[in-house]
Computed example of a mutant assay.
Amino acid sequence: MGYTRTNWSEHYNTGQGFRRLGDEEKGLLVEHAPAPEGGRALDIGCGTGELSVYLTSLGYTVDGVDFAEGALERARAEHAETPGVRWLCLDVGNDDLEPLAGEGYDLITLRLAVAFFPNPTATLLRLAELLTEDGRLVVITPTTEHTPAERRYIALDEDQIAVLTDPFSDTARYTADQFAVLVLGKKARPGQAVERTHPPEPHAVFGAAAVVVDDQGRVLLGRRLGRTPAWELRCPRSATCSPQQRRL
């Protein structure tokens, strides 16, 4: 399946879609993302609009967003009588988000979509900026454990889920119909700033690094362990690596 707008539109124009919203997913949304009075929701990768319409039944006013016009054509046709939802064609990873609600959203959902973003963590952090103070970001994704090998490109493994949730200080994980349901709060984990009282001593440093990327443009990183864990470019296994780096 393609990743371009044209290919996704063809996917929907030929009558295809995705797995229907299950009762367990609905129950988790009711329990962990109840609509406040006047609540607004943003459904990313809305497809033909099933989840968007369900959120209106919970009391949300919904923006259903997809970057494939073919999906939105079906959503508009199939749910023409549904009040409280508008359909927007946007690539939230790259487009200007100005058309979205300036007052923010109490709930943002990504169902069966996050694995298709070239930079999913960066996209989630961008979306988190659109949440209200008590808003929630809900990611529903297949996991590789429960996905056939030939379809694992639609799923996330445990390491990918850890990377996705690591920037968020308020996280919870649930299971619905073998999907992972991640509920993330607005606040990302703060970075640590070090204030210097005098200029650092100059040092001459020479080094070299290789950047390893896959066919989706994702960069391979390693996590440095020890007292101050950090993410860094994956170091080749050579004599120039420290013993700690070689263990990554």
Results as ranks from 00 to 15, higher is better:
residue 2 G to C: 03
residue 5 R to D: 06
residue 9 S to L: 07
residue 11 H to R: 10
residue 15 G to C: 07
residue 15 G to H: 04
residue 15 G to L: 06
residue 16 Q to Y: 12
residue 18 F to K: 06
residue 23 D to P: 07
residue 33 A to W: 14
residue 43 D to Y: 05
residue 44 I to A: 05
residue 57 S to H: 10
residue 60 Y to P: 05
residue 61 T to Q: 07
residue 66 D to L: 06
residue 70 G to N: 08
residue 70 G to R: 00
residue 71 A to V: 13
residue 77 A to V: 07
residue 79 H to W: 15
residue 83 P to E: 08
residue 91 D to S: 11
residue 93 G to I: 12
residue 101 A to Y: 08
residue 102 G to Q: 14
residue 111 R to P: 05
residue 111 R to L: 05
residue 117 F to Q: 10
residue 121 T to E: 05
residue 121 T to H: 06
residue 128 A to R: 14
residue 132 T to K: 15
residue 135 G to H: 04
residue 135 G to A: 00
residue 141 T to Q: 06
residue 141 T to Y: 03
residue 144 T to Q: 08
residue 144 T to M: 03
residue 145 E to C: 01
residue 147 T to E: 02
residue 151 R to E: 06
residue 152 R to A: 09
residue 154 I to Q: 06
residue 154 I to D: 00
residue 157 D to V: 05
residue 158 E to V: 07
residue 160 Q to N: 02
residue 161 I to D: 00
residue 162 A to D: 10
residue 166 D to H: 14
residue 167 P to Q: 06
residue 174 Y to P: 03
residue 176 A to V: 11
residue 176 A to N: 06
residue 179 F to C: 08
residue 183 V to P: 00
residue 185 G to I: 00
residue 188 A to K: 09
residue 190 P to F: 12
residue 191 G to E: 10
residue 193 A to Y: 10
residue 194 V to W: 09
residue 200 P to M: 05
residue 201 E to F: 09
residue 202 P to I: 11
residue 203 H to L: 15
residue 203 H to R: 15
residue 203 H to V: 15
residue 216 Q to C: 06
residue 221 L to R: 13
residue 227 R to F: 04
residue 229 P to H: 12
residue 230 A to K: 13
residue 231 W to V: 06
residue 231 W to M: 02
residue 241 C to Q: 07
residue 241 C to A: 15
